[in-house]
């Protein structure tokens, strides 16, 4: 077979592809996972500081109740909620529960809606 003279083009423009609901839930699972990964060293630092001394404990507490950390906490609450819900969905699908297309679509839709709601709940509960 003759080799083509130059590299062939490939169509892979993600903006021109219509992604099903499951793909949206999946990329959100990945994005939320990366966010949680980034938060992990910060969390370890906060844990370390909060256990070190009375003064550091107080400053960690102060940091957590600043307005900026409210936004960060909101994003992380969504990330945690989505990642956990999507994770449960995958664990169930691994053993054949809800892995038929119709039910997988429904559960994808469900977690995409439930995660922000759960995040809001977490946030409100954390503030009170």
């Amino acid at each position: 077979m003759d080799k083509p003279p130059h590299r062939l083009p490939v169509f892979l423009n993600l903006a021109q592809i219509r992604f099903p609901i499951g793909a949206i839930a999946s990329i959100a699972h990945r994005v939320s996972g990366v966010l949680l990964f980034i938060a992990l060293p910060v969390l370890a630092a906060l844990l370390h500081a909060s256990l070190r001394s009375e003064a550091d404990f107080a400053s960690v507490r102060g940091l957590l109740s600043s307005p900026l950390s409210l936004v960060v906490a909101g994003v992380l609450a969504w990330a945690l909620a989505h990642h956990v819900l999507a994770g449960i969905r995958h664990l169930l699908m691994d053993v054949g529960i809800g892995s038929e297309l119709e039910r997988a679509r429904a559960s994808a839709r469900l977690i995409l809606v439930a995660a922000p709601a759960l995040a809001l709940l977490l946030l409100v509960w954390g503030l009170s």
């Binding site: 990964f37 992990l40 060293p41 370890a44 370390h48």
Partner: peptide, 20 residues
């Protein structure tokens, strides 16, 4: 880099707990 970050997290947490 990812491995170093995660090992760092683990070391820090274990050290903090041991300290307490």
């Amino acid at each position: 880099l990812i491995t170093v970050v995660l090992l760092g997290v683990l070391a820090r947490v274990l050290l903090s707990l041991a300290m307490v």
